[in-house]
Write a protein that binds this DNA or RNA. Structure first.
Lengths: 212, 212
DNA sequence: GTCTATATTGAGATAGAC
DNA sequence: GTCTATCTCAATATAGAC
């Protein structure tokens, strides 16, 4: 006996389509310069549909932000499983984030635009958290590396900022340039070169480990 | 015998006031979300005054961008005079830019918003040049440092990106946080620590020069 | 849920007096 | 050069039929 189609999530695709097109347009023209007219046209529906699902333009925007926030938390949550040397775990963290950034360029561009840009009339969103999580994680790993002898006693703060800064600039290359001048292999080499500089020295060796 | 007041630059202050208030508002709300109504109100004049001086909103925006571009060129031009070790010259370059950024926070915030953000209906402006000048300068200095023996043969690209990335993240702290967690002393320490890692080694020394 | 049609507001920009 | 008053258009948002 055939059952009726379940009434749950009746037209979830329309919601998704609206959000997807809105992301594209917000990235391209910004929140204020994107009209709901453009959004609904891109999604192939009419204005009242948008207002039906999201209440208003702000509601649509906030739903998008929520989704991004959850995506980020899931990404980071899936990274605490790594084990191995501190150097390896930092490299894994950085390349993991980089891979995710390359797979979600549009969303990441939106995040950067919101982080560095003005509110544009849109509700304020604090993305500092994203950055602070990375900063805190690297700081913890370095502390562990120093106490464990993998890294010599040095200026840990400077080390932390230089690593995170190098990582950030690689991410920024991915989203600001059509052909990034540095990416996955580059950040690995940077991490190695910086950490080689603060690695314990063997007695009579020439400098080893550069450009591994 | 009293002479008439000179007719040159009759009301240049009005122009300047409009541009200054526009910068503040563009930083605060973005180009699209700032109305000329708000701008002229902040400057204490009426709309036709703005249209008289700048033609339209875009014209005002472009004048601001032009001014910023010239400021940057002057800043960089005043930096090629430095001499000394490569390490010193990189430090001078970074701290010089940092000082200027701290003195012009509003303008720099605008630059970052334009660089990372969407056009918002404003004419496109390419600020990649700013960044590329810094990148090129550091790269040249490192090349000189390696050939001169101040820096050991190593991965120069990785070194360049790590230095510039570290510098960038310090700048970003200045404009994104009310109380930056790292600034002038921090970037000096970072440069020293990174360059210590690729400095020629004395024979039987313990590791020297960290955290100087 | 989705549409057509419309209400309402505020935007950029200008005419014309002084 | 600067004002008041006004034009024109596009934006957000909603009413009400289906």
């Amino acid at each position: 006996m055939p059952t009726k189609p379940l009434p749950i999530a009746p037209h979830d695709d329309v919601r998704q389509r609206l959000m997807q097109e809105a992301i594209t347009l917000f990235v391209e023209h910004g929140y204020a310069a994107t009209s709901v007219r453009q959004i609904v046209a891109a999604a192939g529906v009419t204005k009242p549909v948008m207002y039906y699902y999201f209440g208003n333009k702000e509601g649509l925007y906030l739903e998008i932000i929520n989704g991004i926030s959850q995506q980020f938390d899931q990404l980071i949550a899936g990274m605490y499983a790594t084990s191995g040397s501190v150097r390896q775990r930092i490299t894994d963290l950085f390349t993991g984030i980089l891979d995710s950034v390359q797979d979600n360029r549009a969303v990441v561009k939106l995040v950067y635009a919101i982080y560095f840009g003005p509110p544009q009339g849109a509700p304020f969103v604090d993305f500092n958290r994203f950055f602070d999580v990375i900063l805190g994680t690297v700081n913890d790993l370095l502390t562990e590396g120093i106490s464990g002898g993998e890294i010599i006693p040095c200026n840990r703060d400077a080390l932390c900022w230089s690593l995170v800064g190098s990582h950030q600039i690689v991410l920024e290359e991915q989203i600001c340039r059509t052909t990034p001048r540095i990416s996955r292999e580059g950040i690995i080499q940077i991490v190695n070169q910086i950490l080689d500089g603060v690695a314990p020295r063997t007695n009579n060796s020439t400098f080893e480990g550069v450009d591994r």
